[in-house]
């Protein structure tokens, strides 16, 4: 039982990283119906921002995290303004391909600037086990879980209670109608990208601190898993992304623990297929009626 609880917490920590990254996918999809494939690269850039800040200033973890999130938010807005905004009226496939292009561009940009060798993230969170009852949990694991949950709660509050949050929901519901209501759609979309990218950077920083390395292709695998998480939970639905992230992390960890490490990815992606077969809109997705 203790062993299972321990594995449960391991899964929670892996899942919370997927969940915060998945939020970025789902928010962007919710508001402009675009799968932002560059999101994994924003996460990678966030990790590099943190790495550079640590090396340059040696500031404590929380400052580094904030700096990285702010820079990633700016990067997110820039990507949106330069690459996606001109295509707002274009067919969705054009925007999708632009997103893939953006992803490759950012990855190769990082390759040129930072070189392919993995950089070692200094241990800005001291490594040690913390004993909670019979459980022993690493400091990094605790920080990862706590921070992800804090930011999810903040996001939930922002979307439900604040004015820009309400605007965001309105735009995702009906863009034309919200213009009529006096909502600045472009600004709302920018805010969405900023928040999504900042959360991506949070995922990137947690990932790089957790696994000690930063490299240009680091966003690919977690980005893909987070995308799967978003789809699994129901893309466009914020609680769905969180749920999806935790489910993916948990399935992955428990597979590694009780079945086999080699099969974990196969089972994760297999699960996606099964869920989509029975509920194409994802776990929390509602069946939308086609408007005639």
């Amino acid at each position: 039982m203790v062993l299972f609880l321990q594995q449960f917490i391991n899964g929670l920590s892996v899942g919370s990283i997927y969940a915060v990254i998945a939020l970025g996918y789902t928010m962007v999809y919710g508001i402009i119906r675009l799968i932002n494939f560059a999101h994994g690269e924003i996460m990678m850039m966030g990790a590099y921002f943190a790495f550079i800040t640590v090396l340059a200033s040696g500031m404590p973890f929380y400052v580094v995290l904030i700096v990285s999130m702010v820079l990633a938010a700016i990067l997110g807005i820039t990507v949106e303004t330069l690459a996606y905004r001109p295509l707002r009226k274009a067919p969705r496939i054009s925007a999708l391909i632009t997103a893939i292009g953006m992803s490759l561009f950012l990855q190769n940009l990082a390759l040129v600037i930072f070189k392919p060798e993995p950089k070692i993230m200094p241990p800005i969170i001291p490594r040690m086990p913390v004993f909670i009852g019979p459980l022993r949990i690493g400091t990094v694991t605790i920080v990862t879980i706590v921070l992800s949950i804090v930011f999810m709660v903040l996001l939930d509050f922002f979307v439900k209670k604040t004015k820009p949050g309400k605007a965001m929901r309105a735009v995702s519901e009906d863009k034309e109608a919200s213009v009529l209501m006096g909502i600045n759609v472009n600004r709302t979309i920018s805010i969405t990208f900023a928040i999504g990218s900042a959360l991506g950077a949070l995922g990137g920083v947690l990932y790089s601190v957790s696994y000690t390395q930063v490299f240009p292709t680091m966003g690919v695998m977690p980005g893909l898993k987070a995308f799967v998480a978003a789809v699994l939970g129901g893309i466009g639905i914020i609680p769905g992304a969180m749920l999806g992230g935790f489910v993916i992390g948990m399935v992955e960890t428990l597979t590694k623990a009780y079945i086999s490490s080699q099969l974990s990815d196969a089972i994760v992606f297999g699960l996606l297929i099964v869920v989509l077969l029975f509920k194409p809109t994802g776990i929390l997705g509602k069946n939308e009626k086609e408007k005639v």
Binding site: L3, V14, A257
Partner: peptide
Amino acid sequence: YEGYTRNDMDFRSVLTIIQA
């Protein structure tokens, strides 16, 4: 006698089993 794959980054679940 535990194996992992090239893309694995998280070894906490395997290490938990070993630790036990």
